[in-house]
Design a binder for these strands. Structure first.
Length: 365
DNA sequence: GCGGAGATGGACC
DNA sequence: CTAACGGGTCCATCTCCGC
């Protein structure tokens, strides 16, 4: 085994790039008067004046208690007049994101966009010192191109890169060497692990497990018996900073849309006409990406915010709004007969995708 | 036992 | 003293069914 060539070829470095308070920062870039102000970008449902939730808040707004997920009405009660409340312009943020992702994609052939504001980049054969220099260069490029700051994490795998990026924000740069993985995680709470949400955290806490080092003392079989084989092994590995997930560009696996109804209802015609309106929008997105779908879902969110769904797989792949509308009546009917209570929000989704065959011939153009 | 289909829940941004 | 409440995606798990 020798050593140098081995180390070089095997050493995997993963970068996680996380654009800081992305929507709010985008607004501050295009509206300089917002520069030094607390900003909350909101998604309004349209049901009442202030129904909806805060999508993203900058740090000044967070300091006043306004953070993402907070109902707008609550945020305004806390900080009316002290925070700028702005309606989200998702198309604009998407266009900014696409330009930045193009920059990041050009850094390595191993690239993965994780969301509108996050991406992973993988490299090999570089020292940690070189990795830090690359990260600094990435930050500089994004700042120069879009005037946006980001936080970058460098780690030995996706999990560690992601956790590292979260360590210092905003405008951070954190390197965690592979041999530092366990120490880096040790004193964190289990809920700080990316992928451990409220439910899993509560379950671990009930077992007397609060910190990552306590989690690490659990044996694999106990974890698997309590959390299932997949989640069990994942927790076991994550607590040790182990993660084998590949960085790779993924294609979307579903297209969907959700809206809040003007008022809660279980009137089939009201629900159906709203659903069919969304059908065309979703089909248009699918066609824009040259995709076809085989499964159509209707999703209902009830008054207590619980989620129920009905879906149907078609005989053939389709890409039209009519194909969605065609089964929507049946799905909504089944939904209403199988669930009681009024619906607050409804959604549709298509999945089971396939790349569309080139159907257009040359003479179509 | 394995797949596809369908339903639900968890997690994250 | 709590509740209030968006839109979007991905993934895991479970059940049922046919093979």
């Amino acid at each position: 085994m020798s050593q140098q060539s081995d180390d070089l070829t095997r050493k995997r470095i993963v970068f996680h790039v996380d654009l800081d308070y992305f929507y709010a920062q985008c607004e501050q870039v295009r509206k300089p008067e917002l520069r030094d102000k607390p900003v909350a970008v909101c998604i309004y449902s349209g049901r009442t004046e202030d129904s909806g939730a805060v999508s993203t808040a900058n740090y000044a707004a967070r300091a006043l208690g306004v953070k993402s997920g907070l109902p707008i009405i609550v945020a305004k009660r806390i900080a009316a007049g002290r925070v700028e409340f702005i309606k989200a312009d998702l198309d604009y943020y998407e266009s900014v994101s696409m330009r930045i992702m193009a920059i990041l994609r050009s850094c390595s052939s191993i690239f993965e966009q994780a969301s509108v504001d996050e991406a992973y980049i993988e490299m090999h054969d570089i020292s940690y010192g070189k990795a830090v220099a690359i990260a600094e260069d990435i930050k500089k490029k994004i700042l120069e191109a879009e005037r946006l700051t980001c936080s970058v994490g460098i780690g030995s795998n996706k999990l560690m890169a992601k956790m590292a990026a979260g360590f210092r924000k905003p405008d951070g740069l954190t390197l965690v060497r592979e041999e530092e993985n366990e120490k880096f995680l040790e004193d964190m709470q289990v809920g700080d692990i990316f992928g451990v949400g409220k439910v899993t955290e509560a379950k671990l806490n009930e077992m007397g497990i609060h910190t990552v080092s306590e989690l690490r003392s659990m044996d694999l079989y106990t974890l698997q018996s309590k959390f299932g084989s997949s989640m069990g092994i994942w927790l076991y590995n994550a607590s040790r900073g182990i993660d084998d997930e590949a960085v790779k560009e993924r294609q979307r696996e579903q297209y969907g849309k959700i809206v809040t109804l003007k008022s809660d209802t279980r009137d089939a015609n009201t629900i159906l006409s709203a659903a069919n309106e969304m059908a065309d929008e979703v089909a248009t997105m699918v066609r824009a990406d040259n995709q076809m779908f085989k499964t159509v879902s209707f999703i209902g969110i009830l008054e207590d915010l619980s989620i129920r769904s009905k879906n149907k797989t078609l005989q053939e792949f389709a890409d039209s709004g009519e194909a969605i509308s065609g089964v929507m009546g049946e799905l909504v009917e089944r939904f209403l007969s199988e669930h009681e209570g009024k619906l607050r929000r409804i959604g549709i989704k298509v999945s089971n995708l396939s790349e569309r065959k080139m159907q257009k011939k040359l003479w179509d153009f």
